[in-house]
Design a protein around this nucleic acid. Structure first.
Length: 513
RNA sequence: GCUCCGGUGGUGUAGCCAGGCCAAGCAUAGGGGCCUUUCGAGCCCCAGACCCGGGUUCAAAUCCCGGCCGGAGCACCA
């Protein structure tokens, strides 16, 4: 929870400097309480990843810190890569995260105040385009791409730049009516072809895309370019502080130029650094081929940092929220280790989830001297009262893990959790023989988990490694595992936290240690 | 190459705008210890950083200049 005085720390210029650790997020420039409007503007071209989570949470947190408004806007002006299912995936994932943010940060309503779909505003953008043409601030260029690129680089002007307003209007009409094919014409803003910032040299603002739009089908063939749509939409929807990752830095100038030429309200544009998770690819560019080639199961594969992949792995939405809250809005590119996220997740999970025993790589063990039938009683949670679970043992036969007997010698003593302290009598390739020790209360003995031979639940544990690899451990769990439901989060004693991914056969995914 | 942005312990950050209370806070990873026949968890302790060089100042992580290093952009994608 953020302390209630957090806002006052941010809002006003505090006369006294606060202790650094208390002063969390840096204040927003020109921000007035109640008047801040921020937005997240995703393109519906894939499943959201951890990178999107930052793009969502940074503006959301600022909007709430200043008791302002927060908008979700779909930036859907490149129909070639956008699909309906992605709009929905983004809504779902973002809603989940914001709900968690409300609980975790206590800053206010955990949802967006308004949703805007940019493509519905294309007619308005056509109007503005025409306005620019009429003022002589934009012209239709029919140079092929490579020529534009070359001229832009050399700071040369092309012949289309000098066309009259009438000719430009006529060509613009032709663009709209379909007389040009994709790539044959585009509308460019007239700025300065010798501007030191290359992106400022007569940037393209509208182009033809001959692909059906996921919402509008073939209704439009001319689409605004990012710089145009984003600046116009931000301005028109009242955004006061627009965040984006820092690769857009050189575009600030272009966008301001567009707004000025249109006479639209300007606003603060703020960049933040991108994040990478130690070696795990975040970009769709990189993930997509892995999915298409079948190496990954899909966009929800627990090995990749898509939000649904992380959720499936057992990373809680509130952990992601907390993680980004602690990370802050820094402009530096951050390489975070998964350990940090795991550590946050563990702290949230630890007091909540039940403990169970799971025996990977099982080997049979007989226990001499154990009175059966017997009932082993174990607490579901070591500190929090979550009740008792009982494991019935009809015969003195159990499974223990081969991993645990490595390094054990005959005569060693071990404790079977909740059952008995035993001495190793013999170790054979397919069976180990144990005997109940005379002295039961011995300090410093290794405590192992076990499962009854009869009634043990076959299960497997999926351990995510890299996007290319994983480990699958087969074994037996205690009988209670049979009662778990899909999505349940548990801790496997001495192994780690895990989430139930599917039943029959019971498959668990290891979240982390 | 050009334009822009940034550099605080191993990693990620706070502090920089408004210089002093910073021999620099937090988290994570690392080392050590404690607890326990209910956690490879938890708790306690330790170690570890202001890129370099000048300047301004009584005082610089903070302001200025130069250098070095890193990132981003240079599309009719966002």
């Amino acid at each position: 929870m953020l302390p209630p005085e957090a806002l006052s720390q941010l809002a006003g210029p505090p006369k006294k400097k606060k202790k650094p650790s208390e002063r969390k997020w840096p204040p927003l420039e020109n921000a007035e309480e109640g008047k801040v409007v921020t937005r997240v503007a995703p393109e519906p071209n894939g499943y959201p990843t951890l990178g999107h989570a930052k793009g969502l949470l940074v503006p959301f947190i600022y909007a709430r810190l200043y008791k302002g408004k927060f908008l979700l806007r779909f930036e859907d002006t490149n129909p070639r890569v956008e699909r309906l299912e992605f709009y929905e995936a983004i809504r779902e994932e973002f809603a989940t995260l914001l709900e968690a943010a409300e609980k975790e940060l206590g800053l206010g309503p955990g949802k967006w105040d308004d949703e805007i779909i940019e493509s519905y505003h294309i007619p308005k953008m056509y109007e503005l385009a025409e306005q620019l043409i009429r003022k002589g601030d934009a012209y239709v260029c029919t140079c092929p791409a490579h020529i534009v690129r070359a001229k832009r680089k050399n700071g040369e002007i092309c012949e289309h730049r000098g066309h009259s307003i009438e000719i430009n209007l006529e060509l613009w009409e032709k663009m709209l009516s379909g007389e040009f094919r994709e790539g044959e014409a585009h509308l460019r803003l007239k700025t300065n072809m010798r501007h030191p910032n290359l992106t400022m040299r007569d940037p393209g603002i509208f182009r033809i895309v001959e692909a059906p739009h996921p919402i509008h089908g073939d209704k439009y063939r001319v689409y605004p370019v990012y710089d145009f749509s984003i600046s116009v939409m931000d301005s028109l929807t009242g955004v006061t502080h627009a965040f984006r990752s820092k690769e857009f830095e050189p575009h600030v100038e272009v966008q301001l130029a567009i707004l000025r030429k249109l006479g639209l309200r300007e606003y603060k544009m703020i960049q933040f650094g991108r994040i990478t998770v130690e070696g795990i690819p975040l970009s769709k560019r990189y993930i997509r081929p892995l999915i298409e080639s079948g190496i990954l199961e899909g966009w929800n594969d627990p090995r990749i940092p898509t939000l649904r992949g992380l959720f499936r792995r057992g990373i809680l939405p509130e952990s992601i929220v907390k993680f980004f809250y602690e990370l802050g809005p820094s402009k530096v590119d951050a390489t975070v280790n998964f350990d940090t996220i795991a550590s946050i997740n563990r702290k949230i999970l630890d007091p909540k989830v039940p403990r169970y025993m799971f025996v990977p790589d099982p080997i049979r063990a007989t226990i001499e001297g154990l009175d059966t039938p017997t009932l082993a009683k174990l607490q579901v949670h070591p500190e929090i009262d979550m009740g008792i679970r009982e494991i019935a043992l009809e015969e003195p036969l159990i499974y223990i893990s081969q991993q645990d007997i490595r390094g054990l010698n005959v005569g060693d003593e071990i404790r079977l959790r909740g059952l008995a302290t035993v001495t190793v009598r013999s170790i054979n390739p397919d069976e180990i023989s144990l005997k109940v020790s005379e002295e039961q209360k011995i300090k410093g003995v290794k405590i192992l988990q076990w499962a009854p031979l009869k009634g043990g639940v076959p299960a497997r544990l999926f351990i995510p490694k890299t996007p290319y690899s994983y480990e699958m451990l087969g074994g037996y769990g205690e009988p209670e595992l049979a009662n778990l439901k899909n999505g349940d989060l548990i801790q496997l004693l001495r192994i780690g936290f895990a989430r139930v991914d599917s039943k029959s056969p019971l498959t668990l995914i290891l979240s982390h240690k």
